[in-house]
């Protein structure tokens, strides 16, 4: 328990944003990142919803971690997650009904997000409340950041507008707001994010003791994995 005093909250939060970014690094939860990001408003609201659910689930699981029997932990995690998703779902339906009409289905789908269950299982069920909350905030902000960036570029290029307001007065590239363009945007931004990480941030990717030089060469080799 002495360890608890040494928790580095800054690292916990940045971990979720950069090193283990749900979309750009772990490539999890790609379904909403393509489905709801064809305009900035939807992308940001989805990100906020996930942030809220992630933090609340982490807190709840962390509170319950001593009473959950290990054999039934997954059903209980799922129950907690769906409880918080229902809360989010209903509050969004009440607060922003017009956006909710477009993306209501995807809000309910947060239940099935691998990232939320994974954080509950790997982190919140083993740690105290404060670190779990920090982890949830980091992960949620990472997700929000990814969705914001993706939807920013998709709306800007695909519609020539931002948050519904026209910005560019040229013929937009319609493909960017269609699902195919979503794949393009996610793929290219993922590559860009990793490139910036390797080049400037230099976070070590989970567990491997790679030097940045090695990362660089793998990035430049054609058809490298």
């Amino acid at each position: 328990m002495a360890q608890a005093n040494k928790v580095n909250y800054r690292e916990l939060i940045t971990n979720g944003i950069v090193k283990e970014n749900t979309i750009f690094k772990l490539a999890l939860s790609l379904c909403p990142s393509i489905a709801v990001t064809n305009n900035l408003k939807n992308g940001v609201l989805m990100g906020v919803a996930v942030l809220f659910v992630q933090v609340m689930v982490n807190i709840t699981i962390s509170l319950m971690r001593t009473v959950i029997h290990p054999k039934v932990r997954l059903p209980i995690f799922m129950l907690v997650i769906s409880g918080w998703v229902t809360v989010t779902d209903l509050s969004m339906a009440a607060a922003v009904p017009d956006v909710y009409k477009q993306m209501g289905l995807y809000i309910q789908l947060i239940v099935a997000f691998a990232s939320i269950l994974a954080r509950a299982e790997m982190f919140a069920s083993k740690n105290k409340i404060a670190p779990s909350m920090a982890d949830g905030i980091g992960m949620g902000i990472g997700f929000l950041f990814a969705l914001t960036v993706i939807s920013f570029f998709r709306e800007l290029i695909g519609r020539g507008s931002l948050w519904g307001m026209p910005i560019i007065n040229a013929k937009p590239l319609l493909i960017m707001i269609l699902p195919a363009g979503g794949f393009f945007a996610v793929g290219i931004l993922m590559a860009l994010f990793n490139w910036i990480d390797v080049k400037y941030l230099k976070t070590k990717t989970g567990g491997h003791e790679e030097s940045t030089h090695e990362c660089k060469t793998t990035l430049l080799t054609p058809a490298g994995d």
């Binding site: 590239l173 319609l174 269609l178």
Partner: peptide, 10 residues
């Protein structure tokens, strides 16, 4: 294909 989907009219 990219162009046809992006600019269906043109």
């Amino acid at each position: 294909a990219f162009l046809l989907i992006s600019f269906p009219k043109l």
